[in-house]
Design a protein around this nucleic acid. Sequence first.
DNA 1: CTGTTAGCGCATTCAG
DNA 2: CTGAATGCGCTAACAG
Lengths: 343, 343
Amino acid sequence: MKKTKLTLKDVAQQLGVSTATISNAFNRPDQLSKGKREEILAQCERIGYSGPNKAAQILRKGTSNIVALVLADSIAYMVSDPVASTFIKGVSTTLQQQGKHLLLYAGDSNSILDVVDFVDGFICYGAPRNYKLAQEIAAQSKPAITVDFDIDDVPSINIDNENAAYEVAKAAIDENDIVAILGLRLIDSPTTCRIYDSPLIDVNSSISHRRLDGYVRAAKEQGIEINNEWIWHLPESDRSYARQAAKEVLMSSPRPNTVLCMSDIIALELLHSALAMGIDVPNELKITGFDGIEEADRARPHLTTVCQSSVAKGEAAANALLSGESRKQILPFDLKLGETIRS
Amino acid sequence: MKKTKLTLKDVAQQLGVSTATISNAFNRPDQLSKGKREEILAQCERIGYSGPNKAAQILRKGTSNIVALVLADSIAYMVSDPVASTFIKGVSTTLQQQGKHLLLYAGDSNSILDVVDFVDGFICYGAPRNYKLAQEIAAQSKPAITVDFDIDDVPSINIDNENAAYEVAKAAIDENDIVAILGLRLIDSPTTCRIYDSPLIDVNSSISHRRLDGYVRAAKEQGIEINNEWIWHLPESDRSYARQAAKEVLMSSPRPNTVLCMSDIIALELLHSALAMGIDVPNELKITGFDGIEEADRARPHLTTVCQSSVAKGEAAANALLSGESRKQILPFDLKLGETIRS
DNA sequence: CTGTTAGCGCATTCAG
DNA sequence: CTGAATGCGCTAACAG
């Protein structure tokens, strides 16, 4: 009937040894004889003591084995995005191997402060929707690492978005094409729309603008200027936003014959819409994606896209955090040529 | 250059009040005048004290605002499963509303013990692959809730799997059909195979066996016995396992004309394989799924399946945990008739 | 190799 | 409404 959980002190008393000995038996095997240690552990097992209280250890040692993964947006959204969930996969695999725990943190929360005291570090995946979080992370002192964006000189994992976009666009664009772009988070709007003259957001920091730069550079090489009327903004890489944008693009007149999409989800939705309208891909419409998600492999025709390994990113981020890496890393990408640009 | 973080004590000294006052200012507004409180908070803000240390609070108060979500399998696997990630969505939305944090816990970990001391409670989604975790959860004293399975009298969230399976099977099966079943975790094998006479696992506790019961009942009503040779086991609801199973079923002779699948992922893979082989669905082959995932809506012909709302399950689980609900709940399901059983 | 001690940072008594 | 004292459960340093 002992309702109260055993404490290290209780156990020490019961076994007639000092608290330090019990503590050492669990945490520092080198501090006592093997025999004694095993005897103690056996006794503990017998009386139902499963080891030092973790909450107390967190306070005392200042570490918890918990890593916070700060997502760009709400957990609800992130977990259903194939790119984000693949990233989480990489992170969690690595953390689990190292005995660390994963705390998911929403990028639209108010503050990081209510976990900063007990977490061991932060992995920050994408610029958080509430950008204050990024500033708080920069300001605090625990190890942190950013992915797909940067804050000051916090170590980070990125790919070369400008070049990746350039490469895929270069593969797709031919002379005299009419080129449109389905972009992500280019302006501050909750709806799908052309960007026209709206003020651009995060022009220097966002990967979307790097990709835009790459697209524009490739187009320019073919003597093509992409007018802002041909650039769409989508608030998220989401099927329903993509469907609207696809419709607008395909109804345009003249209709673009090359559409560069900033995510595979967007590209696939465009592809489906086009096929449903009887448009010949790639002869009447060329499409490129970005990310290299699994679903793209199952599409017909195969999507031309930039493959970036989100698993590798996740692993790299977790490893960098755990190993105290302090440099910024650029990971490689792969161009994948499918039949959406050349039959 | 004060490198060390401010403590409540430091602040009390600097402001010339007692520690209790500072503590109360943050935690118990009713314990001091509004004016004083605001003044203190303002001062704290000014000197850069962001509130009581959370690690210390966890030890002192015994609560952390962290809820552990114990998944059935590794986080890596769960996060890419559409059903599980939708569930996570429901959980996280509810938790975030209530200011709780989400710790993802893998069901193939060794033990729950390294978080039990600081977590506020457990949501256990599906029987953990390492079943010892379930026992540990039953044995400890923090609030817990199970979903899609039960342990003793821990409160739980379930649907009526037997009836759901019965309903969908009844809709699909006609007299003289040859019925096959693509099942999940029916026997202890890491590979896709027919179950033959292998010993069944968790016959009483697993939802898969409840579904099997439902299928069998519906078949029996049409005078059909489903031989074990026509029942497949898949270790996970995974596309590649499903592809193998689909191939085996479709190559069988005689070929079944009705296949009941225990998940939509399996059913969709079977549908694709069948269509690729030129088999007419539903005239030569009827297919049913289970779950009602989004992707099933996009398939043509539309999949006949059982819709269960994973978001609702997640919300129900989180709410039940937070409100101290102690009963077991049965959530409703919906039969969705698509063209995979009747043209 | 073992036992004693002093906090980790805080929340809550209880007097005043 | 305030201030001093106690201990949440543990670990690290130190002395033996």
